[in-house]
């Protein structure tokens, strides 16, 4: 797999396959934590970190442990437990050795266990690997990193939109969540414009 291909995978994960706005993974943190810019940043940094780490661990487990032993039907249960354990481990290690990083990301980590974006990315890269043999470990990691960055981009863009929304005069029934979703629809529209833009790099 050439470098151009990896760049293509990275860009596709951010723009055309954006995990929030195109694939609808991780809508809960997207709606819940995007109100302020700094919490949005912390959350997405933690998600990116866990996504890459989870993919780095689950990919070998699936490929070298589950598939040879014909246990691939246990994928769901193994992955969710691995991710939950991993998040717990990262939290403990961070608390002990990297207090500044823990203070910045730590509070978001427990929330990520039940975030479908993380479980989603670990499963989707395996699906891609199944249909295209050249989509190996490195490509999976690049894809996971791109997905995290895409998450970050969407969160930051949307935090900006929501700060503007605060000052608007919104009809009563639409206040709160409904207007947020309508705003999300418009942001998602802008990402539709990217469709097809990266396809040439992938071939």
């Amino acid at each position: 797999m050439s470098f151009t291909n990896l760049v293509g995978i990275f860009l596709a994960a951010i723009l055309t396959e954006n995990y929030i706005l195109v694939k609808f993974f991780g809508i809960c943190p997207f709606l819940g934590v995007s109100k302020k810019l700094n919490t949005a940043l912390g959350m997405s940094a933690a998600v990116t970190f866990v996504m890459v780490l989870a993919t780095a661990v689950t990919w070998p487990i699936y490929t070298y442990l589950l598939v040879p032993n014909e246990l691939d039907y246990l994928q769901t249960i193994v992955f969710i437990l691995v991710i939950a354990g991993l998040v717990q481990l990262v939290e403990i290690v961070m608390k002990k050795y990297m207090p500044p990083l823990y203070n910045a990301l730590g509070i978001y980590l427990p929330l990520i266990t039940t975030n479908c974006a993380v479980l989603g990315v670990t499963m989707l890269v395996l699906d891609k690997g199944a249909s295209d043999a050249s989509f190996g470990y490195v490509a999976s990691l690049v894809n996971a990193f791109g997905a995290g960055i895409g998450f970050l981009v969407a969160m930051i863009m949307f935090a900006g939109v929501r700060e503007r929304l605060e000052n608007c005069d919104i009809p009563k029934s639409l206040q709160g969540l409904p207007i947020t979703l309508v705003a999300a629809a418009l942001v998602a529209c802008s990402f539709l414009g990217f469709s097809g833009i990266v396809d040439k790099l992938l071939v």
Binding site: F24, S173, L174, P178, L181, A185, A188, L192
Partner: peptide
Amino acid sequence: LPPGGFFVFGMLIAIANK
């Protein structure tokens, strides 16, 4: 397409609120 999903969902919640 994805934007339609967000939009319909927002509108349904607005109606439920109403």
